[in-house]
Write a protein that binds this DNA or RNA. Structure first.
Length: 258
DNA sequence: GTGCGTGTTAAACT
DNA sequence: CAGTTTAACACGCA
């Protein structure tokens, strides 16, 4: 159940293990979410080297020699797991590389989605150049919903999920319940800065914590979002409330704009 | 046994 | 009609 920083680490660590290795075979165990047939997938990918692994929004892209790209969306419960003598449960798709190493995408809920050659998406990534302050200003101007829902809307900006939205809004000192179009411009700038800070800092933390693995998530660095957390780093009691159908964790340090 | 969940989508609302 | 809310997905975990 990864978010952007986790996916960034998975991409880096998958590259460490599999970059420039030839994909010997790809096996489709659950095909319901795949956009092509297993035969088409094998013809596109087998025998080609994995040239690059990128994170794009909440997806990973496995890029292969020959120009084909396999997108992977892990959804809520998807995981990437090494395939060993004791293979992982609930496999969706499995990748066997020359040299004997293999990994699989798993998901007990069967929601994780592999997509061959995913269509270009014009929505900016949260860490991209295109996601700048003027874009954010334009995006929120039309929106009367809460700022938290806007931040998590993948049609507006790609990559921010429920947990990091809470972390970012606390850092920006803006209430998640604030109306998006009522946030003054200086505070929007702070929000933009907080998005960048929180995500990039988390990537650095996770790089240090997980130098090699792509099958593990660490949530040790969250300071606001989590059932076990009672107080913010500055000692304010954390409140929990459902906003837009998902749990929001926040404190009264965060200013409400309505 | 109970309740909950880091995402997305279609259906059902307003 | 457009925007917003809900249920469903199906299992592991506390």
């Amino acid at each position: 159940m990864p978010e952007l920083p986790d996916l960034e680490i998975f991409a880096i660590n998958l590259e460490k293990q599999f970059k420039n290795k030839t994909l010997e075979s790809v096996k489709v165990i659950v095909s319901k979410k795949l956009n092509v047939t297993e035969t088409e997938l094998r013809e596109a990918l087998e025998g080609h080297k994995l040239t690059e692994v990128l994170r794009v929004g909440k997806t990973l892209q496995l890029r292969f020699g020959g120009g084909n790209i396999l997108g992977l969306h892990l959804m809520l419960h998807g995981r990437l797991m090494p395939v060993t003598e004791d293979p992982p449960k609930h496999q969706i798709i499995q990748f066997q590389f020359a040299g004997g190493n293999a990994f699989a995408l798993t998901d007990f809920q069967k929601q994780a989605t592999p997509t061959l050659n995913p269509p270009e998406n014009r929505v900016p990534d949260a860490l991209s150049q295109e996601f700048n302050i003027s874009y954010l200003k334009r995006a929120v101007a039309k929106k009367q919903t809460t700022i938290k829902q806007v931040m998590m809307d993948q049609k507006i900006v790609r990559g921010i999920g429920n947990a990091y939205a809470d972390e970012i809004l606390w850092k920006a000192r803006i209430s998640p319940k604030s109306a998006a179009n009522k946030i003054p411009e200086p505070r929007l700038k702070e929000l933009h800065q907080a998005i960048d800070d929180v995500l990039r800092t988390e990537i650095i933390n996770l790089t240090r914590a997980l130098p090699d693995v792509y099958d593990t998530e660490v949530r040790d660095f969250l300071v606001i979002h989590g059932a076990g957390i009672k107080e913010s780093p500055t000692g304010h009691k954390i409140k929990v409330e459902t906003i837009g159908g998902r749990k929001a964790y926040y404190t009264d340090e965060q200013e409400l704009f309505v």
